[in-house]
Design a protein around this nucleic acid. Structure first.
Length: 657
RNA sequence: GCCGACAUAGCUCAGCGGUAGAGCAGCUGUUUCGUAAACAGCAGGUCCUCGGUUCAAAUCCGAGUGUCGGCUCCA
């Protein structure tokens, strides 16, 4: 097998380069029209005005607003605000039981057990009460008491959840052979709370805050424990910072893929199949571009593609171990007295292909890729757009390698992630999850797989976050994460080193140099992960304005008057013929003022763009962000067409809202 | 699954016991135009589903379905 190398790349996938992705695109159009040469239009993608679209970067991110030191100060303020909120809630709901109330990324929350559900009006009342406390400028006072006194005080106040926290602390200390620690309280005005601190000096130091939402939250995240009501809030040092935060939050909402997906006409969801997307023509085009790009990468890196059945007997899942450990997430089908399942993973089936003939050490590594359609019965409350679905397709692959090939193979896989994520300008974060409690297989094999993985990370010079006990039941795994527009973290790619499940449970062997049958190592990997989720992330990442090589519609021709219709159709035909396979060169069906609305009203593609007055080379607005060009062509019939080579996003996303 | 909210035209929403509304998009006509919405008209609805209360239900009540915000960043 040819050597494979790590090659972080920022270029697009080979072979998917759009033919319009160049200044000559406009020239193509002109040539097609039989027009005289004209000066290049002046619109440039990097011109001013682009940022109006989603101007979040203009105001900076939350992180940019604050240096590292300020973070601690803000955290203290956030935690202090949580205390003030608890004071207000206790005031309005005497007898409320307090859970925990930490500072979080952009604010804070506090969990309460209350006699009734909170309403938006309650939040307003709580906020008003909080303002009084802030105006009173109560000092925060730290008080340390012996453990037993503290526990008695908390128990006397009826704070059962706090008692539980203290008892856990005591138990932990005991396990470590230490005495129960002293307890600290923080008091401000009438309110006292068990707390480690630190806090700001007084409630008057609390800045601009706002309560955001109320949500259910199980005590300690355990669905067998009571459901508490969690109030989320945010607090900033100044009104300006608070406003900026709320503004950024609103902007982030506008690039939510669920919203843009409708506007871009990419996909829709329907209640006849919850958690499964219906892909529209443009969405399917985008899909195919991604798929083809990955196929090209895989062909270059020594993969071969396979395809395995979706409906599979329970016997397979018993053998693989999924039946015991994953059954609750599987869709089951009964037929003629047999139980089948829709496959939730591709992995076991690839072993049938492996075992279809005798394998030699010379055959390895074998790299079987599969764009398999998977079904997982996710709990109804967790479904969310494309990022959490019940049916999805993975760019999956199973590699069968000799032990001496493992480290190089992992290094190459890390390289695949770096290369492909570079196509999109995505910044992946890596984690390494080790053996969970619920694991199958020999612990010594686990130890070995984990060791080899660590070595591969070191060799590839990639840093990672260690997640102890977070591996799958059959393999330690490397996960790759991306944040979405709303700051939520999503797992994308995964690489799992399997010494047990496929090799042992399916009795895989190859014949080594001495003629002996030995076990290969299996590697499960997906680079995009779920194509659905990946597309969701891409929509938000690009705010719907895809780079040209990804864009489902690469060019739009806009006739201005009836006499333009025929040549426009002609030109669109030429553009279609020269577009990247799968993309579209579209023409407006009827004459439009070029300053009018977008392509056809449902599309986000901008039909407004550059140029101001009459004549050539006029300065004006460039096409929107993401890079693109617009040009004019005038032919011998004096037909002037405006050609947008780059689709661009509507200026006001969801302008009607 | 659990807690809470929501579900009205293709989209975004108003209406909240008494004949179903707006903007945008669509269609027709006028306009034929050089860049941040030309003009006029028309059409468009099991008000999510089922059941109940009522003389009368989009509106109130119940159940179901779906969607949205959440469900340990750990005193």
């Amino acid at each position: 097998m040819e050597p494979r190398e790590i090659e972080p790349s920022t270029s697009r996938p080979v072979g998917t380069r759009g033919r319009f992705d160049s200044p000559e695109a406009v020239q193509v159009a002109k040539t097609a029209m039989g027009a005289q040469p004209e000066p290049e239009p002046e619109g440039r993608a990097d011109g001013p005005g682009d940022e109006e679209l989603l101007a979040a970067p203009d105001r900076g991110s939350a992180d940019e607003l604050l240096d590292a030191g300020a973070h601690d100060e803000l955290d203290a303020m956030r935690h202090s605000t949580a205390h003030v909120m608890a004071e207000a809630v206790l005031d309005l709901f005497p007898g409320a039981k307090l859970g925990i109330g930490p500072a979080v990324a952009d604010g804070f929350y506090y969990d309460f057990q209350l006699p009734r559900a909170l309403t938006p009006a309650d939040l307003e009342a709580i906020e008003a009460r909080m303002r009084e406390s802030v105006a009173a400028d109560h000092r925060f006072v730290r008080r340390e008491v012996p453990f037993d006194d503290g526990r008695a005080a908390v128990e006397g106040a009826g704070q059962v959840f706090k008692v539980e926290i203290l008892d856990d602390l005591a138990a932990k200390a005991k396990a470590a052979g230490e005495p129960s620690p002293a307890i600290t309280f923080y008091e401000h005005g009438p309110f006292s709370d068990l707390c480690r601190g630190p806090h700001v000096a007084s409630t008057g130091k609390i800045g601009a805050f706002k309560l955001l939402s109320v949500a259910g939250a199980y005590w300690r995240g355990d669905e067998k424990r009571p459901m508490l009501q969690r109030i989320y809030g945010t607090v900033w040092r100044t009104e300006q910072e608070l406003e900026n935060f709320l503004w950024r939050r609103e902007e982030a909402r506008k690039r939510d893929h669920r919203r843009l997906g409708v506007q871009l006409d990419l996909f829709s969801f329907h209640d006849v199949s919850p958690g499964a997307a219906f892909w529209h023509p443009k969405g399917q085009r985008l899909w195919r571009i991604l798929e083809d790009s990955m196929r090209e990468l895989q062909a270059r890196r020594g993969y071969t593609e396979v395809s395995t059945p979706i409906v599979v007997s329970e016997r397979l899942w018993r053998q693989s171990g999924h039946w015991d450990l994953y059954r609750e997430n599987m869709f089951l089908i009964e037929s003629e007295g047999q139980t089948f399942s829709l496959k939730p993973m591709n992995c076991p089936e690839s072993t049938f292909i492996y075992r279809s003939k005798l394998r030699s050490y010379r055959d390895l590594p074998l790299r079987f890729s599969e764009f398999g359609r998977l079904h997982r019965n996710e709990r109804s409350g967790t479904l969310a757009g494309l990022t959490r679905v019940r049916q999805f397709i993975q760019d999956d692959a199973h590699l069968y390698v000799r032990p001496d090939q493992l480290t190089d193979e992992i290094i190459a896989l890390l390289g695949e992630v770096m290369e492909s994520y570079g196509w999109f300008g995505l910044q992946p974060r890596f984690s390494f999850a080790t053996k969970p409690d619920k694991a199958i297989g020999d612990p010594a094999l686990w130890e070995r797989a984990e060791q080899l993985t660590r070595e591969a990370f070191a060799a590839a010079d990639i840093s990672y976050e260690l997640k102890p006990k977070d591996g799958t039941f059959y393999a330690p795994k490397i996960d790759i994460y991306i944040d979405d527009a709303l700051g939520r973290e999503w797992q994308m790619a995964t690489i799992q080193i399997d010494l047990t499940m496929l090799p042992e449970r399916f009795d895989l062997t190859y014949i080594d140099e001495s003629g002996k049958a030995v076990r290969p190592i299996a590697i499960h990997r997906a680079i995009y992960g779920s194509l659905e989720r990946f597309i969701g992330i891409l929509i938000e990442h690009f705010a719907g304005a895809f780079p040209l090589w990804l864009a489902p519609v690469q060019a739009v021709v806009i006739p201005i008057a009836d006499r333009h219709l025929a040549p426009a159709g002609e030109l669109a035909g030429v553009l279609r013929a020269r577009a990247r396979p799968g993309a579209e060169g579209a023409v407006h069906a009827r004459p439009r003022r070029p300053g009018g609305r977008g392509e056809d009203g449902r599309s986000p593609y901008e039909s407004r763009g550059a140029a101001g007055g009459r004549g050539l080379g006029c300065p004006g607005r460039p096409p929107r962000r993401g890079g693109g060009r617009q040009g004019r062509v005038t032919d011998e019939r004096q037909c002037t067409l405006i050609v947008y080579v780059m689709p661009a996003l509507k200026s006001k996303i969801g302008n009607s809202s």
